[in-house]
Design a protein around this nucleic acid. Structure first.
Length: 390
RNA sequence: GGAGGGGUGGCCGAGCGGUCAAUGGCAGCAGACUGUAAAUCUGCCGACGAGAGUCUACGAAAGUUCAAAUCUUUCCCCCUCCA
């Protein structure tokens, strides 16, 4: 069923593991970070630049590309890889997360109880989810079958079952009902997938169950018991970091560890170390690229400005006269060429180059981090590595 | 020389007797962002004070009024049109 895909664990340190995820478009060394290029573009950078900083894999989104320009359009133009000029492995997400993000807003706002913007999620029922297109306001129904069809048309290597991503602020009963529905949707995703499987894609199942140990375990077992190529942990991961690590552990308890395991939507440095230690193989997150566009440059602990954050904000006037690069020991194009002072100026002057330059650094940063994590697992010194990065 | 229109907080610009330390916008400062609706959002932004509050403010000066950024007079400066 997945004969063109393979996952081999090559090194293990406690529960952390190093592996190779093989696809017909190349191998991915894990643990790996997947960069979000939601609308068929990793914002502000070119595929060439992504490769220059050792990017292995990126992710696009069903909902967005379905709204515009349409999956069939992209299929007609040769598929998503060709369309966006990326020939390495790629993911597409199913649109399930948009049931949350378009219904509730950002993760932070939802946890803090703040709602923002006009809801673009109209309703969710057994068939699927009815959205308002972000592009033209049309209502559109996304079902598991449709999500798989779209993802098939887009042609990413790894595709994801359609699920309902639940928010944090709902009670257990609703989380359970939603989880059960996600399971039914995932079954339907699998059926739709198997019906047209041409071995060019591998399907992920998603673990739901909110913050409840028994639900997470049940959901993980559901995913493991079904013929998905790999597993992903989704849904709310709780309100605090501590809770997040607990939730990951709950899910891990029921997962088949011979398959690759992806943690959806997580990209903090500490979070990645914690995730890796629990056995996560891949992560995806908008954070590195999004904060870059807001002037946030990821830095190792020695380069921080004293705050507990994992990045420095180059918009701050502190950096106006700072002639050093973002990180002295970084060899990305940005750190080789530009000072913090120049980046500060570019941000203040509203020059697009700032967004690109910082994005390049952050991508390089994440890729270098993952590389060191991999060697940390192989050489069994993950703890030392983590002290340097956290 | 004649006619008219203006001068408001770092900048632009509302307000045209009290509810004005003064709407907005920009800039500035701080914060947020975790399967990207948003290169976005939130807060602060005269001085002193933790705060209640106090003081100084709407070109300058003098007035009218219980009360003036708002009304009157004079002065200074800017812009437009006609000579």
């Amino acid at each position: 069923m997945y004969r063109n895909f393979r996952f081999d664990v090559i090194s293990v340190a406690d529960r952390a593991r190093c592996g190779i995820l093989k696809t017909s478009r190349g191998e991915i060394r894990t643990p790996a970070f997947v960069f979000c290029g939601t609308k068929a573009s990793v914002k502000a950078v070119t595929p060439q630049q992504l490769k220059e900083v050792n990017t292995q894999i990126i992710l696009s989104n069903t909902y967005h590309l379905f709204s515009y320009p349409g999956a069939e359009h992209i299929k007609m133009l040769g598929g998503l890889h060709k369309f966006m000029g990326w020939d390495k492995p790629m993911f597409t997400d199913s649109g399930g997360f948009q049931i949350f993000s378009l219904g509730y807003g950002s993760v932070a706002n939802e946890i803090k109880g703040k709602r923002s913007g006009i809801p673009k999620l109209i309703k969710v029922d057994e068939r699927g989810a009815v959205f308002k297109s972000y592009w033209d306001g049309n209502t559109q129904l996304l079902t598991p079958e449709k999500s798989i069809k779209i993802q098939r048309d887009l042609g990413a290597d790894f595709i994801v079952s359609f699920d309902e991503c639940t928010p944090y602020r709902i009670e257990k009963k609703r989380t359970e009902e939603s989880m059960e529905r996600s399971h039914r949707w995932e079954k339907r995703s699998l059926d739709a997938f198997e019906q047209f499987n041409d071995y060019s894609q591998a399907l992920y199942g998603i673990v739901q169950g909110g913050i409840y140990a028994d639900l997470r375990k049940r959901s993980a077992e559901f995913v493991s018991d079904n013929p998905f190529f790999a597993s992903a942990i989704g849904g709310t991961l709780g309100a605090t970091k501590e809770q997040m690590y607990e939730v990951i552990e709950m899910a891990m308890n029921g997962l088949n560890i011979s398959r690759p395991i992806h943690l959806l939507g997580i990209g903090g440095i500490v979070d990645i170390f914690k995730g890796v230690a629990l056995g996560i193989d891949t992560f995806d997150c908008v954070h590195p690229t999004r904060i870059a566009r807001h002037g946030g440059a990821l830095v190792k602990s020695q380069y921080r400005d004293g705050s507990s954050r994992e990045h420095i904000n180059l918009k701050k006037s502190t950096y106006k006269n700072d002639d050093s690069p973002i990180e002295l020991d970084c060899n990305c194009l940005t750190c080789r060429s530009f000072s913090r002072a120049y980046l500060h100026y570019l941000l203040k002057a509203n020059e697009l180059l700032a967004l690109q330059a910082i994005t390049i650094h952050n991508i390089k940063f994440m890729n270098a981090l993952m590389e060191e994590i991999r060697s940390g697992i192989t050489q069994n010194n993950l703890k030392t590595i983590s002290e340097k990065w956290c």
